[in-house]
């Protein structure tokens, strides 16, 4: 039986996390269908059809799905999912929101946030904030899975030529409504897809001082992140938070500035390829995971770094 992957998108473009989920799905089987559910999202379906490894794109284009409301989307996915061996979605806030609803409607378990596929029914996932790694076998006929993007490479966005098939029937539960959203606007890459991330911690001292990080980030084409301590101190908004309770990232280069390295932060970034720590406290735990450590005052280092890049 085929595998249904639920595309993440904003009705105009496919989100990168979808490509990681497609790669994960390809380890479970080789007949992959991608569902694009949204409103006015034909362009997303066209993009989805080009993703390497996708055999068919299902397009559910209706106002009921515009904001990915869990109540409506889960009814659609559960109905379609009955005919699949696996239903897979990225473990983004969207996927985490609607997928357990799908699993419950199908009367099966969900296996959350997988980082590896051992076989078509066995998956590896972090538990206890990444302090333990569990291997879990599904006993259900339909496997409902969410995928941690950093665990899998992205599938090629080009190269496929899947047919697009419209899905009939509309599911509108009529019990919830979208009111509004406030999205952080930035010209920088998103944290979860950036190749380079520079993050600041409590050591930054204030929100204004994050400008020092931004200057370095601009030189590197990097995203700017923060530790929970910096968020709790009110320096920056929560959507910048890297850590177990924020975003899980694994860029090629992660630069931690003025971050001590609490377990909860390390859980969010320790899979980065190269980690740099800049901290004036040489005892800071962050140095235990850093490939390159620089014991120095960040207010001296950041301007120098900006100049030398």
């Amino acid at each position: 039986m085929a595998i249904l992957v639920i595309a993440e998108h904003d009705n105009s473009a496919l989100k990168g996390a979808t490509l990681n989920a497609v790669t994960a799905a390809s380890r479970m089987g080789d007949d992959i269908h991608l569902l694009v559910a949204g409103a006015g999202c034909q362009a997303v379906a066209d993009e989805a059809a080009k993703v390497a490894g996708v055999n068919k794109v299902l397009l559910a284009d209706n106002a009921a799905y515009e904001h990915q409301l869990a109540e409506n989307l889960s009814l659609l996915v559960a109905e379609l999912g009955k005919d699949y061996s696996h239903v897979v979605a990225p473990a983004t806030t969207t996927g985490k929101n609607f997928m357990p609803r799908v699993a419950a409607l199908l009367d099966v378990a969900q296996i959350s946030d997988i980082i590896r596929v051992e076989s078509a029914d066995t998956f590896v996932r972090p538990i206890y904030a990444g302090n333990a790694i569990a291997t879990v076998q599904s006993l259900d006929a339909i496997k409902v899975i969410t995928v941690r993007g950093t665990g899998f490479d992205a599938a090629a966005a080009e190269g496929g030529a899947a047919a697009i098939e419209a899905v009939g029937g509309v599911h509108d539960a009529g019990i919830s409504a979208f009111v509004g959203e406030e999205m952080a606007k930035s010209d920088r890459p998103e944290l979860t897809s950036a190749q380079v991330i520079i993050s600041g911690g409590r050591g930054m001292g204030s929100g204004e001082n994050f400008a020092l990080l931004e200057k370095v980030a601009d030189k590197l084409g990097a995203a700017v992140g923060a530790s929970r301590a910096a968020v709790d101190a009110g320096f920056v908004p929560n959507d910048m938070q890297v850590g177990q309770t924020g975003k899980i990232v694994a860029p090629d280069l992660y630069i931690a500035v003025g971050i001590s390295g609490a377990i909860q932060h390390l859980a969010g970034m320790k899979d980065s390829k190269v980690i740099v720590a800049i901290n004036k406290d040489e005892e800071a735990p962050i140095f235990q995971v850093a490939d390159y450590g620089l014991v120095a005052d960040l207010f001296d280092v950041l301007p120098q770094l900006e100049q030398q890049l």
Partner: peptide, 14 residues
């Protein structure tokens, strides 16, 4: 108001 990737979203629920 919900914390979602990239910002905040507000929903109204029955």
């Amino acid at each position: 108001t919900r914390e979602v990737d990239g910002g905040l979203q507000t929903l109204s629920l029955n």
